[in-house]
């Protein structure tokens, strides 16, 4: 297309302008001015739209927070803290001990992390650093499919396929914290894998070449150079994976047995039925009278979840190195 009859769209404004300044093209001063006007008007609109959407996020989050506080604060005000963090959750008898639910969520999440993080990282490293192209092309679609499976379907699979296996292994029931962890791990795997892989991909090729040329083995290169350089992305991947695990509800409700008891501390805890905070809210919300103490306590659980996830996010940003300090960090 000839330069002179290009449409004067606003997006081209800048390039037209510079071309005018340097190139031989002869645009009249007038059309240049209109072009600029045009451009600044559309930029103003775009800028404000962006600002508006930014502000709307802040507004919505604040509203959610206040709503949670309004509905849930009664739980913390009306029930003695001693009882609220007690060990018995019997809403019918007026006992609202959150401790078993918190412990339940803790074990399921820890179990999921312990399974998903090593599996996810090694898969990503294999995909990004070691596997030849053809294997990558086969593996990738599978991971995408895994990401596309609705969580409830995974929960269902856990219930019909995984639970019997676990029971056969000697657990009192197949519906245990571990069953939940396993399902959650597979749910968060695609997130962990793909974000870690992106992080590895972003590590400059020159780092690898440089390391290999100095006589480092491929493993030394991955361990000492690539992983440290990709550290912030990897932390992000893990945190997002965990975030998904903590928040997940339905699949977990299906497979963890939903018993609000406190398992004894230790490895065995993973193989006992537990109940998570999220599952409790989902299971009981439909049956409580709005405004009752039980109702308030369920919202109180919501507050606890909110605080915990925010804490994890905060920790993640800390580990990554904080705002404005993100650069290829790490050390040898």
């Amino acid at each position: 297309m000839n330069e002179h009859n290009r449409p004067h769209t606003s997006t081209e404004g800048t390039s037209m302008k510079t071309r005018e300044a340097s190139g031989p093209s002869k645009m009249t001063a007038r059309s240049l001015w209109e072009n600029l006007k045009d451009q600044s008007a559309s930029e103003l609109i775009i800028e404000n739209l962006i600002r508006l959407s930014g502000i709307s996020v802040i507004v919505v989050v604040t509203l959610i927070f206040f709503f949670l506080l309004r509905e849930g604060s009664a739980a913390f005000l009306d029930i003695p803290l001693r009882q609220l963090f007690g060990s018995r959750w019997y809403p019918i008898e007026g006992l609202f001990g959150l401790w078993p639910l918190m412990v339940g969520s803790f074990w399921v999440t820890i179990g999921a992390v312990v399974i998903a993080v090593p599996l996810g990282l090694t898969t990503a490293i294999y995909l990004g650093e070691i596997a030849p192209l053809w294997q990558r092309e086969i593996l990738k679609p599978f991971i995408e499919v895994l990401a596309g499976i609705p969580s409830i379907v995974l929960g269902f699979l856990g219930w019909v396929a995984l639970a019997p296996i676990i029971q056969n292994l000697g657990a009192p029931s197949g519906l245990t914290a571990f069953t939940g962890s396993f399902i959650l791990a597979y749910m968060s795997l695609p997130t962990i894998i793909s974000i870690t892989e992106d992080a590895l991909y972003a590590v400059p090729k020159e780092y690898r070449d440089g390391s290999l040329a100095l006589g480092a083995t491929q493993w030394q290169t991955i361990w000492r150079v690539v992983l440290p350089a990709a550290r912030s992305g990897i932390v992000m991947a893990i945190m997002l994976g965990i975030g998904r695990a903590i928040g997940e509800t339905m699949a977990v409700m299906l497979v963890t047995g939903n018993a609000a008891n406190i398992p004894e501390f230790g490895f065995g805890a993973l193989f006992q039925p537990i109940r998570t905070m999220t599952a409790t809210i989902a299971a009981e919300m439909g049956e409580v009278a709005q405004g009752s103490l039980h109702y308030n306590v369920l919202f109180g659980i919501g507050i606890v979840l909110f605080v915990v996830t925010s804490g994890i996010n905060l920790l993640a940003t800390r580990l990554v190195g904080g705002r404005g300090k993100r650069r290829p960090g790490g050390r040898l």
Binding site: E206, D209, G210, P328, G330, L332
Partner: peptide, 9 residues
């Protein structure tokens, strides 16, 4: 190499 790239550290 042509493009000097120090390793992180």
């Amino acid at each position: 190499f042509a493009i000097p790239t120090p390793l992180p550290g």
